Computed example of a mutant assay.
Amino acid sequence: GKAIALTMLFTIGLAVGLFVLMPLLIAQGGVSLLFGEVDTGFESLLVHIFEGLIRVIVFVGYLALVSRSAEIGRVFRYHGAEHMTIHTLEAEQPLTVENVRKWPTAHPRCGTEFLVIFIIVSIVIFSLLAGVDLWVAILGRILLVPVIAAVSYEILKFGAARRETGLWRILFLPGIWVQKITTKQPDDSMIEVAICALQESLAANGETAPEGSWDPVREPIPDVGELAKEMEARLDAEEAAAEAEPKGEAVVAEADRSTAPADAPAPDAPAPDAPAPRAGGATEGA
């Protein structure tokens, strides 16, 4: 519990620092270097514009950087499979690999879409803090993060149902573009995993998948406690075997020595070296 809480606090703090505060400090410092003190409306506007651009660059750059990892790339492929499966369900088509494969990997209600809307809304709301002291700007941005998140969620929820209309379609386009980074084409096994996960989610809500959906063979999930005991016993056995192995070798060596015959002849001594020749070719004793 405590470890999870600390991890969440660290993650939230890192996100706020990286995507909210760092762009402000970089923009403020850059404009100050170019124009001196930021004390006019024009300079405050420049800070706000640069801050928004830096925030976008940091966000997209971060996603592009982590996507180069093989493990994250695999996660993004599962991410694409999830979206494709949701598309299939929303179209009321049977959940099969063939049907899922027809749909795009991007989805308008994706978490990536939410983050893009969050950045757009933050640029608008943070403009209200243009021209204030730096410490007020920092504190205001931290306090406004929950407000921006709530507004962004409502926009996402409201616009997702109207995403085919002109204005909302344009608003959602940046998020769809960014999902080209965060979603990749999955293989068939990943689609099967996504179908299984969606079917379990539907079953948990008392719903069923469309008729004709792929029905995988289900195996009972082992009890977590039993798995833990089995793993602990296996580790104990491996440790005991590792500790006993050197002792066993010593016992075998001692047994070999004890069974050797007492009157066994000693190994032949090496022959003495031949006498060195004297000067003139004569040998000693000639």
Rank of each mutant, 00 (worst) to 15 (best):
I123W: 13
V217W: 10
Q93F: 14
I176C: 05
L45W: 14
G281T: 05
P146V: 10
F19M: 10
R109W: 06
W103P: 05
S32K: 11
E90H: 06
G175S: 11
D39N: 08
D273L: 03
I176R: 09
D256Q: 03
G13A: 09
F50P: 00
L235K: 03
R109G: 13
A197K: 14
P23T: 06
L14D: 09
F19D: 09
P210V: 15
Q28T: 09
Q185D: 11
I181C: 02
Q185K: 12
S213G: 15
V193G: 09
L21M: 15
I12N: 08
I54R: 04
I86N: 12
R169M: 03
V31A: 12
S189Y: 13
A244K: 00
E200C: 10
G52Q: 02
L18N: 08
G36Y: 09
L143H: 10
L24W: 07
P174F: 01
P270M: 03
A255Y: 00
S122M: 13
Y153L: 14
V151Q: 00
L198N: 06
T208E: 15
G73F: 00
A130W: 00
P108M: 05
I142D: 11
V178N: 08
I191K: 00
K157W: 11
V121I: 14
T7W: 07
D256S: 05
V75Y: 05
V251W: 00
E284Y: 03
L89V: 08
E92F: 11
I12V: 14
R163M: 14
A279F: 10
A203E: 15
F114S: 06
L235S: 06
D187H: 11
F19A: 12
I119D: 04
R234D: 04
R257L: 11
F126T: 10
